Simulated assay, not measured.
Amino acid sequence: MENKFSFGFQPYDDLPFSELYKYLGDSVMIDICTIFVCIFGLVANGIILRLLGFCTKRNPFTTYILNLTVSDFGFLLFLLHINIFVRIRNVLMPSYDLYTDILLNLLLLTHSSCQFLLTFISIDRCVAVFFPDWYCCHRSPNLPTALCAFIWVLLFLLCGIQLILFFTGADEYFDLTVYQYFVIACICLPLMTIATLTLFIKVSFKLQRHQRGKLLIVILLILLFSLLFSFLTNALSIAIYFNVVFDHLLDYMFLCGSLKSSINLLFFLLVGRWKVHRFQENAKVILQRVFKEEEPQHTIQTEL
């Protein structure tokens, strides 16, 4: 049983040998690129996890970043597993079973959690910039933890229900993954787009140069690049759902997803070292410098 969001794991028996050879060759090249990106992203997100989890003093906002890093790490881990083991097995012995469905549902879970967290992060930064006094005085320090816990519980519950539907055969009639993509495409992406563009305009044209903290710049870069790859990933997912004929849709979707989840550390390092002449600093010092600006961000005064 294969639902529409099984990401197109299909046998290749109906293709002529010449077309099959070319198709698999192109697919393997894209998969190799995705695998290298996933490995890099796992190392990068692992560094952020270690530093934020054990080596850096946390504040309410870093809770969002920590959970986002966990989501990205999980997404890349499941995607790497799919690209290596499931792909090889699919070529040698085409099949679609419960194990594959578990992996794909976990992949969707981590992808969805990334989108929800990025939406909350974009809204949080907008509130911090536009209403700094209210943000400083009235924001609950436990709100990020509560929101992150709610996201994980909800998504794990949906994932478990979807697996039960698959196991009982009811997924042919009722597919929860459709609603997850609907929420991401129609709620999360529009909210994140509005918040990110508003924040970009504010940072570019309203805030004075000395008020543009490094943390704000890092978050804005993460949001802009995440928006780009999220639109591409969701557009390709919708194309797969509606059976649009285009070679390597699945491969390109996985590549876009891996890029989106692998670039955060680069932004932290690049922005954290900007205008700093000590080139021997390690990632811990750079992250501490970036997140140290979280407190001053509360006192940003807007230009009228």
Rank of each mutant, 00 (worst) to 15 (best):
A149S: 13
I187S: 07
C188V: 15
F254I: 15
V178D: 10
L236N: 09
V86N: 14
G53C: 12
Y64C: 08
L20E: 13
L117V: 08
Y252W: 13
S122C: 06
P11H: 09
T119I: 04
G46K: 04
F61H: 00
I47C: 09
H81S: 09
C126R: 00
L269M: 12
I300K: 00
E303L: 00
L266E: 00
I84H: 03
L24S: 09
F9L: 12
N234E: 15
F231A: 05
F267E: 00
E172D: 11
L221G: 03
L165Q: 13
F5R: 04
F174I: 03
D31Y: 09
A195Q: 00
S262M: 06
I65F: 12
I194V: 09
N142W: 05
I32F: 01
L215Q: 01
N234C: 08
D26K: 06
T177W: 05
I240S: 07
V271R: 07
D97T: 10
K260V: 11
F167A: 15
F267A: 14
V203M: 12
K22E: 15
I187M: 04
S258Q: 03
L304Q: 09
V285R: 06
I217E: 07
F116S: 03
C256L: 13
A195D: 03
L227Q: 07
L66P: 03
P60M: 07
F73N: 07
S204E: 06
T299L: 04
D14M: 09
C148I: 14
P16H: 09
I184C: 05
L98C: 08
K57W: 04
L236T: 03
S18T: 11
E294R: 00
V127L: 01
L117R: 03
T145F: 13
Q180C: 14
V86D: 13
V70K: 03
A128S: 12
L163I: 13
P141I: 12
L77T: 15
N90E: 13
F130P: 00
S71R: 02
L155K: 03
L154Q: 07
N234L: 07
F291M: 01
P141W: 10
H298G: 15
V127N: 00
L42E: 05
P141L: 10
V203K: 03
K206N: 10
F205I: 02
D247R: 10
Q301V: 10
F75T: 06
W274N: 03
V244E: 14
V86Y: 11
F225G: 06
M29A: 14
I263H: 04
T145V: 10
F246C: 12
N264T: 14
Y241S: 11
T56W: 07
V86M: 12
L158Q: 09
L143F: 12
K4V: 12
L224G: 01
S18K: 09
K275D: 15
N45E: 02
A44Q: 05
V153C: 14
Y252K: 05
T196G: 08
C38H: 05
N67S: 05
P296N: 03
F130E: 02
L223G: 03
G25S: 12
E294W: 00
I187A: 08
I187W: 06
S237T: 11
F242D: 13
L270P: 02
T198L: 08
V245A: 11
F73P: 11
Y173M: 02
L117G: 05
K214S: 10
Y181S: 04
Y99P: 01
L221Y: 07
E2R: 14
P11N: 15
L52T: 13
C33I: 13
P141Q: 11
A283M: 02
L103Q: 04
C136Q: 01
A195M: 02
